[in-house]
């Protein structure tokens, strides 16, 4: 037997083929940074700057006047109803799509994306068409003294519509990547359906669920278009935070408008931080599977 000498492995070349020249790199970085500062950072700073222009007292007064508090309350209520409902729907839909084969699966998948592709204003109009006074269900609703449009239920409905995709979309790829072997193993070991959901499925998707919930919540609180159509803009009754900002702005009450807007901006910042934390955990949960 003769031995064939292995070819000498040359040390890794210093210049990686996919690496651009320093000049190109710095141009790209600078371009991205200036774009972000101009369109994202500057407005954010402007919001707080304008809000505090006349000092703390005016700022606090703007966000604690009764109409503002009512708007805050309504926004929280809408989110408190829409987010849990979407949580349940999101888990159910993702479970069905990721773990079962059934007829109409692709239709369900595209339906979940519908709110992303439809303009929120159109979504609001659809509800007006259905539940409005002149709408299909209008006469029946009036007879029974139920108001949906220009009332809180309409706002909740519109909020649910625009936030449907967030949780399901986050969970489907995660659940598909994890497969259903762990659930099968649990059932063979004698676990019931609920025990399997509670001990196996939910813990495995908890970070993805949190991530989806954060995004869903941010959208629920910040939604403007769909809510604007169904709200009727009744001060202290059917105004959400975003709508309240618009009204104040249209009344040239800039300081108050920016003060309320700063609340939404703060929410966005908190969301961003939580989202980043959850994102890292999701990545961990996906890769820490049995296949790693």
């Amino acid at each position: 037997m003769t031995t064939i000498p292995l070819p000498q492995i040359s040390p890794a070349p210093h210049k990686v083929v996919t690496q651009e020249s320093p000049w190109a790199r710095w141009t790209l970085i600078l371009l991205a940074l200036s774009f972000l500062s101009l369109f994202l950072l500057l407005p954010l700073v402007a919001v707080f700057f304008e809000a505090l222009r006349k000092g703390w007292e005016v700022y606090l007064a703007a966000i604690t006047e009764p109409d503002a508090l009512a708007a805050i309350r309504l926004t929280l209520t809408a989110a408190a109803i829409a987010v849990p409902l979407n949580l349940i729907f999101g888990i159910a839909a993702a479970w069905a799509i990721a773990k079962f084969e059934f007829r109409g699966k692709s239709i369900l998948t595209s339906l979940i994306d519908l709110p992303f592709s439809v303009s929120p204003v159109v979504a609001g109009l659809i509800y007006v068409l259905i539940f409005g006074l002149q709408g299909w269900a209008g006469p029946w609703l009036r007879e029974h003294d139920i108001s949906i449009i220009f009332a809180v239920p309409g706002i909740v409905l519109a909020t649910i519509f625009v936030t449907v995709p967030f949780i399901a979309r986050e969970l489907i790829p995660l659940m598909q990547a994890q497969g259903s072997e762990e659930e099968e193993a649990a059932i063979i070991l004698g676990a019931s359906g609920w025990q399997t959901l509670w001990h196996i499925t939910l813990p495995n998707i908890k970070w993805g669920l949190l991530y989806g919930t954060i995004l869903c919540n941010a959208r629920a609180m910040g939604e403007f278009g769909a809510v604007s159509v169904v709200s009727g803009h009744i001060r202290g009754l059917t105004n959400t935070l975003s709508l309240h900002v618009e009204i104040l702005y249209n009344e040239y009450n800039f300081v108050a408008a920016f003060a309320v807007a700063s609340l939404l901006a703060l929410l966005a910042l908190v969301t961003l931080v939580l989202k980043t934390l959850a994102e890292a955990k999701v990545a961990q949960q996906t890769t820490r599977g049995n296949h790693s």
């Binding site: 072997e181 099968e184 649990a186 070991l189 004698g190 025990q195 599977g289 049995n290």
Partner: peptide
């Protein structure tokens, strides 16, 4: 049943994995 890709419960310790069938 033993799966090709083990299908261990990733969110549980080894002890909890083995105990699962008894606990449920």
């Amino acid at each position: 049943f033993v799966f090709q890709h083990y299908a261990l419960f990733r969110n549980m310790t080894i002890f909890e994995n083995v105990a699962f069938g008894l606990r449920v």
